[in-house]
């Protein structure tokens, strides 16, 4: 492993670093204020490692939720991770000992960085994906633990800084749009999710969106499958 590779990984993950340190920081403050400080924050960021779920976790802990309702809430909020696995099956094949961690650490943001597979030249792709995944989790842990330690002392008005994550996904979306051979999958993803959001509301729309996206892409396979796979 050389310094050049590490530099490339840092550059590639900088947007996620910004977003994770900020969002992790917010989570750390929230959890600390709810009475779940340093060790709890560290445990959640190491073992759960799913941003929106950890935010929700704070309210589940303070409202005295049951284990069953926590498991169900996790299922609803994180079901989208099933899709990430499906898209990475071929790419993570043959990753050997790194594979379990690659799968464990497949968050929204890591997925958005690895789903293209544009590995720097001359680098083992699995080592590259592994470093990207590991660095991202380290950023998340540092951000959240810092939030738990110094959170209440911050006076800088950081309202809106969490937009960094939205901006990251918009950037990836534009980049994919510019390189895609066919725009139907991207357009379908946006349109179906918007319709489901309008029908089912902000708490329930993700799972119906996923089912409909899967159905639309399956139906579209005879139409544009050849073009995309070529």
């Amino acid at each position: 492993m050389n310094r050049n590779l590490l530099r490339q990984v840092v550059i590639k993950t900088l947007p996620v670093m910004t977003g994770y340190v900020v969002l992790g920081f917010g989570f750390g403050i929230l959890s600390e204020n709810a009475g779940y400080g340093f060790w709890w924050v560290l445990a959640m960021s190491v073992f759960i490692y799913a941003g929106s779920m950890q935010y929700l976790m704070v309210s589940l802990l303070t409202s005295g939720a049951s284990v069953i309702s926590t498991a169900l809430a996790t299922l609803m909020v994180n079901a989208r991770h099933l899709f990430y696995g499906i898209s990475m099956i071929d790419r993570y094949k043959g990753a050997g000992a790194k594979k379990p961690y690659l799968i464990f650490a497949l968050t929204d943001e890591t997925y958005s960085l690895v789903c293209h597979g544009d590995t720097p030249e001359g680098v083992n792709p699995h080592l590259y994906y592994f470093l990207v995944s590991l660095f991202n989790q380290i950023y998340w842990i540092i951000g959240s633990v810092l939030g738990a330690i110094v959170g209440s002392a911050v006076t800088f008005n950081s309202a809106g800084i969490d937009f960094a994550m939205t901006a990251l996904f918009v950037t990836v979306f534009v980049e994919q749009w510019l390189t895609a051979k066919n725009h139907i999958p991207a357009a379908a993803g946006v349109c179906i999710t918007v319709v489901c959001l309008l029908i089912f509301g902000g708490d329930l729309f993700l799972i119906p969106s996923m089912i409909l996206i899967l159905a639309a892409l399956s139906l579209g396979r005879p139409v544009f499958g050849k073009e995309i796979q070529s």
């Binding site: 997925y111 993803g189 946006v190 999710t193 996206i213 892409l217 499958g225």
Partner: peptide, 9 residues
């Protein structure tokens, strides 16, 4: 195809 749709989602 999923990556395109999911990033949109």
């Amino acid at each position: 195809v999923l990556p395109y749709a999911i990033i949109g989602m």
